[in-house]
Amino acid sequence: MGLTLTWLSVIVLIPLAGLFIKSMELSLDQFWGIITSRRTLNALRVSFGLAFAAASVNLVMGTIIVWALVRYRFPGRRLFDAIVDVPFALPTAVAGVALTSLFAEKGWLGAPLAALGVKVAFTPVGIFIAMIFIGIPFVVRTVQPVLIDLDPELEEAAASLGAGRWHIVIKVILPSLAPALLTGLALAFARAVGEFGSVIFIAGNLPNISEIAPLLIVIRLSEYRYADATAIAVVMLVASFVIIFTVNRLQRWAQSRMPSN
């Protein structure tokens, strides 16, 4: 027990505390000045805005994928089930270079898209695509066990009472999945906000346009502007604490709705 706490402190808590202590060397005005500077605000807006958009896509597509994987039987189902974890297992730098060459103007997908007038690589759209990629497993893996355990009698009862299929899905199934869906959304969002490796290759990294907040931290560090880097990091860290807190609440909510577990 003591060993656990010591080790946890050495590796995780002390370093994180160091970040907050460092940020306290700044006066409130300085701190405020850094995080409200145009470039920082734009980087935060790009990271948080696109992460939310990507997580929303993952919510919709993740629901469809998990539904198909759990409820239907089709050739290759087990293969696709395993493939869902690839974004989790593939090193982010590899994902980054792969997505970039896929969506570059002469890439397999980039070329046809360019013919349609859509430019993906080196634009904010590229960031959006990379964030969708890394968020795929979260919604699927949080909803999957809940959907598998869903009591079939609920649906049968609703159907025997004359409810249409669409009605059952909306009124019976989706509400039972809601906590898991929201947890998945929050996890995908948290991951996308902080994501670095898979995004920077495809992003283009133009300040104020396609520059994500983690990259701005790296740039400030390389300029030895530690205070700037720390201030941005604190904002992002507080955001991830809020997300963890939300996820914990969601999970408690889910548990309270399933007294059988």
Binding site: I14, L16, T230, L237
Partner: peptide
Amino acid sequence: TLLITLIDLPFSVSPVISGLVFVLL
């Protein structure tokens, strides 16, 4: 519960920030 949350913490921190904390130390 708090301890488990703390153990999970590195999952929800941006990798760049994970590096940054060691630069600051």
